[in-house]
Design a protein around this nucleic acid. Structure first.
Lengths: 150, 150
DNA sequence: TTTAATGCAAAAGATTTGCAACATG
DNA sequence: CATGTTGCAAATCTTTTGCATTAAA
């Protein structure tokens, strides 16, 4: 899942612009880490990123990777899959439903919609494997966090 | 977020049926743990479930909670939010896209659909907070795992 | 030169495992 | 009664933190 050179360059440019605008230093490590994520579509975890970057930069440490990852996340330059910074959560609701998730505090609320239950997926998805379930995930900021955060 | 008594009883019945059919013992601990998840819509994590169950059952241990949770998951009686059993994954793709996730190996592939990008959410969602992004998550079993697993 | 960022090592947090004691079917 | 399940304690894995050193602007 390599991303096209052109797209990667676009992402790098955007990364550099955002950092400069916010006065965040463009260190060698940050460039390598972001570049690694920007080049792949396979959604690596922190340790995989660490391993890959270390091939080119043997002195890098895992904690720098973590710090950089969350920085990139806070800057809106990368996004996490799953419940970020939170342990796994469990749900006994087996009826078809959808989720609103607060990116700040992890608050998650089910919501229902027969319309969304009947979404049609593009044919390309079928070729990826067997489909068990489809649901819509809405990310945002919950009312509690809006009050506090401003 | 309390679930209606009637629905909870339905869930408990289903839980007991599935366990009996598969020859899985209905221990006091399992009943309490499942009952705890079945009664709430707030998607607790393992430790929260542990704390709540312990109020009624002071001798229960955290590792039993974990073991039971994954058992329930394997039985299809509960579902996890987020990348279950996997560390957080990162994505530098900021274009609107959707995910196919393999529940067995964690394989995640982006897919695109302008139709899905323009999903209309029910009004009720607006009242939960500010919406940043909406995407569709498809869960299933990828081709690799289908080959291996059968 | 100033301040933020890194690397190291140690800590903290989440989850899993081995094993003897115990409860369910 | 036989086997699967539990609780405990220790191990493992993931992520975070304190602090002296180093590098970007």
């Amino acid at each position: 899942m390599k991303i096209k050179k052109q797209e990667v360059e676009l992402r790098m440019k955007h990364f550099e612009t955002v950092c400069r605008n916010k006065g965040i230093k463009l260190t060698h490590q940050r460039m390598e880490i972001f570049s690694e994520i920007a080049q792949t579509g396979d959604h690596p975890d922190a340790d995989q990123i660490f391993q890959r970057v270390r091939d080119r930069m043997p002195t890098i440490s895992l904690d720098t990777v973590y710090r950089t990852l969350w920085l990139l996340n806070d800057l809106g330059l990368v996004v996490t899959l799953g419940t970020s910074r939170e342990p796994t959560r469990f749900d006994a609701n087996l009826n078809s439903h959808h989720h609103f998730v607060c990116g700040q505090c992890g608050f998650t609320r089910d919501f229902y919609s027969t319309e969304l239950n009947n979404i049609r997926l593009p044919d390309s998805v079928d070729s990826l494997g067997e489909i068990d379930a489809t649901h819509v995930e809405v990310r945002g900021v919950c009312r509690e966090c809006l009050k506090k955060g401003g």
